[in-house]
Amino acid sequence: MTISRRNLLKKTLVGTAVAALPALPLGAIKFLSPAEAKAAVSESKTRYAFLVDTNKCVGCGFCVKACKKENDVPYDSPVTRTWVERYLITKDGKSHIDSPKGARDGFTSQLQENQHETVDPKEIDKAFFVPKLCNQCESPACVQVCPVGATYQTNDGVVLIDRTWCIGCGYCIMACPYGVRYFHPKYKVADKCTFCYHRLAKGLKTACVDACSFGARQVCDLKNPEDPATKIILTERVAVLKDEYGTKPHVFYLGLDRNVR
């Protein structure tokens, strides 16, 4: 039995192609109706954003508690979709930062978690709280690095994760400069704040906004100039976190201190 090299290659190629046919992920191909296709590419009339007034935050942690309950994040796990940081800036210029359990139970002691030190109140020049959550960036690094496209940006600006498709590699967690992502202890996939997208879709506010009695948190639509929080963002001096990474974050802060990390 002899076979020419050309024939061998030809037959191998044909054989491989035939064998590979049933492996094609036909289920992954989806045909859209014209209306669906239009909705997918046309620009949305909404761009969700968030406004945090750090001057109003008292560090009660109700937002963290509400978020954990609303979004099925295990209550006793150290991971959380939103958290509050406490900053104590002492006379020597040093900042002492902590966020025990993400401030789920508020700040009940003067003891600095992980530092085992107490800061003398007389030494404190200024002190404040800074709530943190996903920045729903315009150019999200997490979406860029996902190898399977399991995390994506909706056309109204919110970044979401497909729990049925995430492979759990953790690349998005590494890529986020804000540390908002983690592996969900129950679902074993990447997880993060979604601005309570399921609530926004129903016209509700996010769980944390509803839980905040002090009005430190507001969610808004940047494309609606009548939205009170949008008005503030457009007319007052607001800042964002870690501008230098070029991700164009969409959580805006009032009264952001230069010491905030």
Partner: peptide, 18 residues
């Protein structure tokens, strides 16, 4: 991988910005 059985998705639905 947290979801090792989905590892093959990298071959089937590669997201080329990654």
């Amino acid at each position: 991988l947290q979801q090792p059985f989905r590892g093959i998705h990298v071959m089937f639905t590669p997201h080329f910005t990654s």
